[in-house]
Design a protein around this nucleic acid. Structure first.
Length: 425
RNA sequence: GGAGAGAUGGCAGAGCGGUUGAAUGCACCGGUCUUGAAAACCGGCAUACGUUAAUAGCGUAUCCAGGGUUCGAAUCCCUGUCUCUCCGCCA
C-alpha cells in the first residue's frame, strides 16, 4: 500500500502519477472521507479519554469510600455517544482501507510512460537467434516427437491448461530447476527455502495479491490459497519483523509450483505449455535497505539473465512502461527469451522493485543504530526463471533436424551426462 | 480424530476487575568509576495511529485474534487461531 501520508499531503500529484499507470483515483471521494475521518476520529478519541478519566476516578472514589453515584450518572451519558461515534469511525476507516488496499504502487521516475505492452522499452539484447536449415517445430510437436509432453492425458486428468511431462523431457524440466537453484545459492548469494504451497489470506494480502486479485488465485475450502508464486511465502517471511540493519540484504530463493486461475486470459496461448494453471518457477526475493533497492533490482535482473546466458538462450531485457506494470511494483524488468517457432521473444522472467509498498502492508521493518524508529524495508522479487517456459525455450532453440534435442552443456551434469534427448540410434 | 495445558514487552517471567503500557531479571543504550576492560552503581529502553511545523508535547489503541459482560478488562464469559503433552492414525 501507498503511504497514507502521501494521500493526505500530496493528493493531486499522487492521483496524477496513478493516472499514468492507468489507475483512476477518486480524488473528491477520498477528500470527503479524509475530512470526515479527521472530525470523527478526534471526537471519538476525546470521548474515549473522558470516559477513561471518569472511570479512573470511580476507582479512586470507591477506594476512599466516597459516593460514586454522581460519577456513574456522568459516565452513563457518554456511553451511547461513544458507541455511535466509534461505529461511524469504523465505517469510514473501512471505506478508506478499501480504497488504499486497491490502489497500486507509484511508478519510479525512470519508468517510461505508456499505456500497455506496446510501450515497453527494450534495454538490451543478448545472443543471436539461431538459424535452422530445416523447418522448426514448436515445443508441442517436439514434445510429441520425444514422447515427453502429453497434453491429452493432462486434460483428461485435470482439464485445460495443464501439462504432463514424461521421460527425458520431465528429467530436463527437473534438471533446469536444479541448475537455477544451484546458481542462485552458490554464485548469487541466495539462501534456499522450501516453503508451504498453501498460504492464508493475510499472507496473500501482504504481498499484494489480495484483496484486489482474489479471482486470479485458487482457494481451498478452508480458505487457504494456492500460491501463485513463491514470492508470496518468501516475501512474507519478514512480515511483522524488525530486522537488524546489519542483516540486510536478505536474499531468498525457492523452487515451487505456481498456481493461477488465468481468469480473463481465455483464448490466449491455448496451445502448449506457455500459459498453465500450474507451472514451476524458481523465485528470487530480496529484502533490502531502502537506499539499495534500485541497485538490487539491477543485480537481481542480472541473476536471472545469468541463467539464460548459462543456457546460451538468446533474450532481450525490457523495462515495463507505467501502464504494463504489476500492482505492487515501482519498476519492473522483463526478460524475454527467443522462441524460434513463434519467431518472437516471449516473457520468461519478471524482476520488480516494490520499494516499501509490500513492506508497509506486511509491517516489515529494520532498525538502524542511529534512527529512533524502525524503518520500512524495501522488497524485490524476480523469477529466476519460469521453469516450464525455460524448458520450452531449450527444446525449441536446441532442436535438431530429426526432432531430437541437444542438451545445453551446462545442463548435462544434471542429466547424467546426456548430450541429447531422444537421439536416434 | 480423542483428552488435557497454555499464548503477557527483544528474551525469561509476575500480575488474574480499578490510578497497569504493564513488577522483576537478562539483553541493549548512555553515564559515574577505571590507564583500558570487567564488576559495581545511576539513568534510559515497545509499537502503531491521530493531532502538530515537529522524530516536542498531548491523545487513542495494543498483554494471540474477534466478539461480549462492566462505569472500568491483561485480568471474567463466548468463538476462532496457534503452541505444547498424552493416546490414536499416518509419509
Amino acid at each position: 500500500m501507498l503511504d497514507p501520508q502521501l494521500l493526505r499531503t500530496e493528493l493531486e500529484v499522487t492521483a496524477k502519477k496513478l493516472a499514468e499507470r492507468g489507475y483512476d483515483l477518486d480524488v473528491a471521494g477520498w477528500q470527503k472521507l479524509e475530512q470526515a475521518r479527521k472530525t470523527i476520529q478526534v471526537e471519538t478519541e476525546a470521548l474515549q479519554n473522558k470516559r477513561t478519566t471518569i472511570s479512573k476516578s470511580i476507582g479512586q472514589a470507591k477506594a476512599k469510600g466516597d459516593d460514586i453515584q454522581p460519577l456513574l450518572d456522568e459516565v452513563a451519558q457518554i456511553g451511547e455517544q461513544l458507541e455511535s461515534s466509534k461505529k461511524a469511525l469504523k465505517d469510514i476507516l473501512t471505506d478508506m482501507d478499501k480504497v488504499i488496499l486497491y490502489t497500486p504502487n507509484l511508478a519510479d521516475e525512470s519508468v517510461p510512460l505508456g499505456k500497455d505492452e506496446a510501450d515497453n522499452v527494450e534495454v538490451r539484447k543478448w545472443g543471436e537467434p539461431g538459424t535452422f536449415d530445416f523447418t522448426v517445430k514448436d515445443h508441442v510437436e517436439l514434445g510429441e516427437v520425444n514422447r515427453g509432453l502429453d497434453a491429452e492425458s493432462a486434460a483428461n486428468l485435470s482439464g485445460s491448461r495443464f501439462t504432463l511431462l514424461t521421460g527425458e523431457v520431465a528429467q530436463m524440466h527437473r534438471a533446469l530447476a536444479q541448475l537455477m537453484l544451484d546458481m542462485h545459492t552458490e554464485k548469487h548469494g541466495y539462501r534456499e527455502y522450501y516453503v508451504p504451497y498453501l498460504v492464508n489470506a493475510e499472507t496473500m494480502k501482504g504481498s499484494g495479491q489480495l484483496p484486489k486479485f482474489a479471482d486470479d488465485a485458487f482457494i481451498t475450502e478452508d480458505e487457504r490459497y494456492l500460491i501463485p508464486t513463491a514470492e508470496v511465502p518468501l516475501t512474507n517471511l519478514v512480515a511483522d519483523a524488525i530486522i537488524d540493519e546489519a542483516d540486510l540484504p536478505i536474499k531468498l530463493t525457492a523452487h515451487t509450483p505456481c498456481f493461477r486461475r488465468e481468469a480473463g486470459s481465455y483464448g490466449k496461448d491455448t496451445k502448449g505449455m506457455i500459459r498453465q494453471h500450474q507451472f514451476d518457477k524458481v523465485e528470487m526475493v530480496q529484502i533490502v535497505h531502502p537506499d539499495d533497492s534500485f541497485s538490487a533490482l539491477e543485480e537481481m535482473t542480472g541473476h536471472a539473465e545469468a541463467i539464460l546466458q548459462a543456457l546460451e538462450l538468446p533474450y532481450r531485457t525490457i523495462v515495463l512502461c507505467t501502464g504494463d506494470m504489476g500492482f505492487s511494483a515501482t519498476k519492473t524488468y522483463d526478460l524475454e527469451v527467443w522462441l524460434p517457432a513463434q519467431n518472437t521473444y516471449r516473457e520468461i522472467s519478471s524482476c520488480s522493485n516494490c520499494v516499501d509498498f509490500q513492506a508497509r502492508r506486511m509491517q516489515a521493518r529494520y532498525r538502524s543504530a542511529g534512527a529512533k524508529k524502525p524503518q520500512l524495508v524495501h522488497t524485490l522479487n524476480g523469477s529466476g526463471l519460469a521453469v516450464g517456459r525455460t524448458l520450452i525455450a531449450v527444446m525449441e532453440n536446441y532442436q535438431q533436424a530429426d526432432g531430437s534435442i541437444k542438451v545445453p552443456t551446462v545442463l548435462q551434469k544434471y542429466m547424467n551426462g546426456k548430450t541429447h534427448i531422444n537421439q536416434p540410434e
